[in-house]
């Protein structure tokens, strides 16, 4: 559907920086679109400049339904990805699963009920898992195995699986599922960006997998294309380029601390108290490559024309 014909958009996960960048891009393309942002987290600053009306609510609450009733959304962007915070894995997982699984079911039901035309779900390449038996260029129909070993990533895998099941059941609502590679950028606060930008971050000296990186602005651009250009389907989102994790660190330009992989986890536990927390699942991505195939996206969009190449993406991080 053309952005010109969209009158209102709901962005779920508005507290995230990717959501803010996306809102800015939408506003830039069509300032007449009414953007409603929701998140269970605190009210983010500077949303008024983006013409976003923000509500801090729990996705499962009934007043969430009121928003659908009042605003008659044409498009729903589900950008509320998982966040690795907190020390108690079990409670974090329970909370996260409750938010994502119950939440997404509720959202999908509301989309059908209030005749939303299109839903865009932001998943992640993490759902495939970094496993020793992974071939390169994982296709969209590759089994999602990330949660086999790491329960802390189960929320996003379940969310993705649920979205795909839902797509098959409710074809009237056009649904696009995006599985991007590592999104990095000066505003994104995810694990990989924090890892790349931390001086003396421990990097494995015995493994050096390739990574695909996408700039936050290019990802926001793909989300916009998911509204008006991509046919309903699941898409891996990645550039054609790749770089090893050691080379990526070199491009960013921070000093690193090469250590055997088995030491990274204990070191990360020490680092989390002073700098940041490396999620448990993340270590496996430093061992085995998880390169996704972007041919479905190429097929739909032709040339991807990303604004930043992989070197620029990493260079501007610091």
């Amino acid at each position: 559907m053309d952005l010109e014909n969209v009158s209102s958009i709901l962005i779920i996960g508005m507290a995230g920086n990717l959501a803010k960048i996306t809102a800015k891009e939408i506003h830039g393309k069509n300032p007449n679109i009414k953007i409603i942002g929701v998140d269970s987290r605190k009210v983010p600053r500077s949303l008024s400049k983006l013409n976003v009306k923000f509500h801090q609510i729990n996705y499962t609450r009934s007043h969430f339904e009121r928003l659908f009733r009042e605003h008659k959304f044409d498009v729903v962007l589900f950008l509320g990805r998982y966040a690795h915070v907190g020390l108690n894995i079990l409670s974090m997982l329970t909370d996260s699963l409750d938010t994502k699984i119950s939440g997404i079911k509720n959202i999908f039901d509301l989309c059908v009920k209030f005749k939303v035309k299109r839903i865009v779900v932001l998943s992640s390449f993490h759902v495939y898992g970094a496993l020793p038996g992974n071939p390169l260029f994982l296709l969209e129909d590759t089994p999602l195995k990330a949660d086999f070993k790491y329960p802390d990533i189960r929320d996003v895998v379940e969310m993705d699986k649920m979205a795909r099941l839902w797509v098959d059941k409710h074809k009237a609502v056009e649904t696009v599922i995006l599985r991007p590679c590592s999104i990095v950028g000066p505003h994104i606060q995810n694990a990989i960006t924090k890892y790349l930008t931390t001086p003396y971050a421990p990097i494995p000296m015995d493994f050096n997998p390739n990574f695909q990186f996408l700039h936050e602005t290019d990802m926001a651009d793909i989300i916009l294309k998911a509204i008006d250009k991509l046919p309903p389907d699941t898409y891996n989102v990645a550039p054609d380029e790749y770089v090893t994790i050691r080379d990526a660190m070199k491009i960013v330009g921070n000093p690193t601390l090469p250590v055997p992989l088995f030491l990274i986890e204990p070191m990360a536990k020490i680092l989390k108290k002073t700098l940041f927390k490396i999620p448990e699942y993340f270590i496996s991505y430093l061992k085995f490559p998880c390169i996704i195939d972007n041919s479905n996206l190429h097929k739909a969009l032709g040339d991807l024309n990303f604004r930043y190449n992989i070197k620029e993406t990493l260079k501007y991080l610091k």
Binding site: P132, G133, N134, P135, L136, F137, L139, D206, F207, N208, P260, L261, K287, F288
Partner: peptide
């Protein structure tokens, strides 16, 4: 072999690839 520290990387750098039909 791909799971072996140092060796897995060295094999990959010299051209070896995980035996998989898709690869």
């Amino acid at each position: 072999v791909t799971s072996l520290p140092f060796l897995g990387e060295w094999f990959a750098q010299t051209g070896a690839v995980l035996g998989d039909r898709q690869n």
